[in-house]
Amino acid sequence: MNRIDTRFQQKKNNLLSIYFTAGFPHLNDTLGIIKQLDEAGVDMIEIGFPFSDPLADGPVIQQSSGKAIANGITLKLLFEQLKDVRQHTQIPLILMGYMNPVLQFGEKEFFRKCKEIDIDGVILPDMPLVYFESKLKTMVEENNIANILLITPETGTERIHQIDNLSKGFVYMVSSNSITGGNKTMDVQTDYFNKIKDMNLKNPTLIGFGIKNKETYENACKYSNGAIIGTAFIEHLKQHGTKKESIQTFIKNIRK
């Protein structure tokens, strides 16, 4: 069984998944950040592999991606950095990034490599459903990787079911129609959150985009199995660094 599924079986509520950009702030910070997040008690980690033109991301992740690329991170190097990650942690690990770097690395090789280092899931936000079904589904399943797909407030009911059926691990609920790090208020999204809750999807759900503090985290947890934080964590790393105390403080402030 995949570690993501196990985690959702052990824990139904208040899950916290943290996103960070690999190779940021410094090229070799990747493994250290994973270890610190695991020690700080988060439930899952999303490791972002950067792309020069991240369409769905706001300024903070654009900048962390640009800096990481300038630092010299590549998918090849990231896999190298993660080679022995399972000697350090058994936390569910998800790789998140855009299609083009995967295409250049080679799709088949990408998923094989994920399996080799024991990655549990992938999120490729600009991968079309029809492309997944026709080109990638078999590859992903052969390697026991959870393919995690996004839904938004504008996703129609029929399509939500389609996405739920093609998803493994969890369904990623984008909180509002916005790029990452947005400031749209979550109050107006309660209809959407309730609708999804009432649909009783086969997969668990996590809410992401715009989750940045204790209040937004707790609000998201009311309607789903938990929440994902990205932009706010990257801002924190920029200001307070990647040391143990810094990361512990960030997580404590979310869950105090």
Binding site: L55, A56, M99, P125, D126, M127, P128, Y131, L149, L150, I151, T152, E154, T155, G156, R159, I163, V174, N177, S178, I179
Partner: peptide, 11 residues
């Protein structure tokens, strides 16, 4: 060609 867009743009 194709339409490689994130779900936010799909509709």
């Amino acid at each position: 060609g194709g339409a490689f867009v994130p779900e936010m743009l799909y509709p």
